[in-house]
Design a protein around this nucleic acid. Structure first.
Lengths: 196, 196, 196, 196
DNA sequence: CATGAATGAGCCTTCATTCAT
DNA sequence: CATGAATGAAGGCTCATTCAT
């Protein structure tokens, strides 16, 4: 998004992104100061502006990156699968995995929506909607094929997403529960909730 | 905006709490300035300190109040119900209703956990755990009585809570979906997910 | 200075004065808040104004009281003594004793001169001058009678006062040096410095 | 008042120190606001923080600088002098001169001790003690060599220091008394007080 | 590209003081 | 007399951002 050509430029920008991700995840966008960020990267505050346009821009950049990747990946994972039930399983598997691996991006992507400028927020919300639509489409197909029985597609989609997304607030990769079991439990919860 | 002459102490505190709830919900704790808060209540910034000790204190007060009420209410609603299935239904009904009616408190209670001082956060997290334990207890009893079939109690409880809590991020009381239907959809999702 | 008739009035005023003395001595006039003062006396801040006119007034009251007492006492102690040497000894004895016993008043009386309003400062400085004049007069008489040999009366007077007053910055009544010895040492220092 | 364009770092810091010295001397540490200080230097209040860490830090810096210089100078002035009497004379001469020329530093160094944080105060008090020890050592040597007759070294040292330091509260370099006479008067007062 | 110094706005909080009750 | 709640000003300090070097 914000990038300047040059020798150590891209590396520095990457470091800024990574540090920003970390700090925003841990303390929140408002609570993170660019001074702290600069210090973490080993720069003076003013130098950040050789890589980013504004603090707000960095936030948008982070979230936007995340959303675009999310959409690319889900499409890649669903490609070639036709059966709605299989597609739903794939969706759950992907969502869960991605949300565990990208805990910070996911959290920021929803908790810091309100810190985005109206214009930026609109853009991100549109991408979120795109992603939700992937799930809605699967559910609809399943209903059409009588594989699923669902009272309200959108409500169910939101409920499923909330449930799956919720894990990134408590799941600890180093904790007692292994990822496979987590996937099984959630897959069952979802399937039982939509199959007749 | 203008000073309400004769507004006595408790009333002013209540106004501060209400305004704080609103502002924190909409812009976040860090982003809310006490100047804005004071203006909304019709006071000078310094006058807030006749009613609250610090900004942090107000946040804690708001969240703590919410948690205590939550626990009181769920206990009241569950009292006298024995059957695990019925208890689970009551839990879902209560949780959903409360989370719709107290959207702001609920949101703040989780989104602003990180804005609490370590000591305060600990206290709140303990209360949250208490609440989660109510659901775990129900699930356990149900499993013991062979009414439920659950792979991992705690994981399921978190999944259910995440799902039910999720609604307060998108549900609009004035939107197309009425509360009854919402309850039906979620109750089914939950029950199907835990019954054998 | 500032007094209201009434039942517990005078006692409260005395408590305010004592607390003020203590707080100003320990933290300085600017650093002492009326809130702290009120708390120490067991009142609400606003209630102080039933006894004092302003914070500045309290300071002036304290210092003025001190100066007036100082003058009354030195005159009493010198009364009836004629010989300049004896008068000087009496002065040293009185000054030392008073400055040890009224450490706080003395300290405030010089350190907080700058915190007085111009008008108040003028008044106090005049009283200080009166006191200095007592010593100058003694020295002059002694010189006239050839008992003393002094190059510059005023300079010597200031030097002597500085020396004698200095003790209240370090003397600890409970320390190793007893008051009698202190008096001896200082008396000798002074006398040796002015006698031929 | 107006910003001195191009004023580089060290120069600005020096200006801040000088302005701070002046303001603290005249109004006291607590009474000096950083806004006033900044205005005097021609900066915005926040810009001060490019040069100092905190207000407290500035105070400590000022006093510490003063104490270190004091120690360096007295040692330089005493170097090469062996006779206790000559050393005492040199001490008096140095002390008096320095205290006249650095009136403000000296005053702040003792009047604002109480405004220092406990940790900072400890450090400064230790340096003061070092300086006092220089005088004590001279007196001791003189006593050992029977050149001085002193009842209590420490008490006498304090008395002498108080007397000499006192002048900086009233001496006006532009006044009627010239420095040479001042030195004579004080030297005699001191010597007469310690010689047999 | 990075730095250091500056800006101007704003933050939370404290303060002396007032006044209806 | 005392209280509790208010005011308005000010305090120290932090912040995102700019820009000459």
């Amino acid at each position: 998004m914000t990038r300047t050509v040059g020798s150590s430029g891209p590396k520095t920008l990457a470091a800024i992104r990574e540090a920003g991700l970390d700090l925003i995840y841990r303390s929140g966008y408002e609570a993170m100061s660019l001074r702290t960020l600069a210090a973490k990267v080993g720069l003076q505050p003013g130098s950040l502006y050789n890589h980013i346009a504004t603090k707000q821009d960095l936030l948008y950049d982070l979230i936007h990156n995340h959303m675009v990747t999310l959409l690319e990946r889900i499409d890649a994972d669903l490609a070639g699968i036709d059966d709605p039930l299989e597609r739903l399983k794939a969706f759950v598997a992907f969502h869960l995995t991605y949300h565990i691996e990208r805990k910070r991006e996911v959290f920021i992507g929803s908790a810091e929506l309100r810190s985005l400028s109206p214009k930026n927020r609109k853009r991100i919300v549109a991408l979120r909607r795109d992603y939700e639509d992937r799930l809605c489409a699967i559910l609809e197909k399943g209903v059409a094929k009588k594989q699923f029985r669902i009272a309200d597609i959108r409500v169910s989609a939101y409920a499923i997403l909330a449930m799956l997304t919720g894990i990134c607030t408590w799941y600890d990769p180093k904790g007692r529960i292994d990822r496979k079991k987590l996937l099984e439990v959630h897959t069952r919860l979802v399937l039982d909730g939509v199959t007749p």
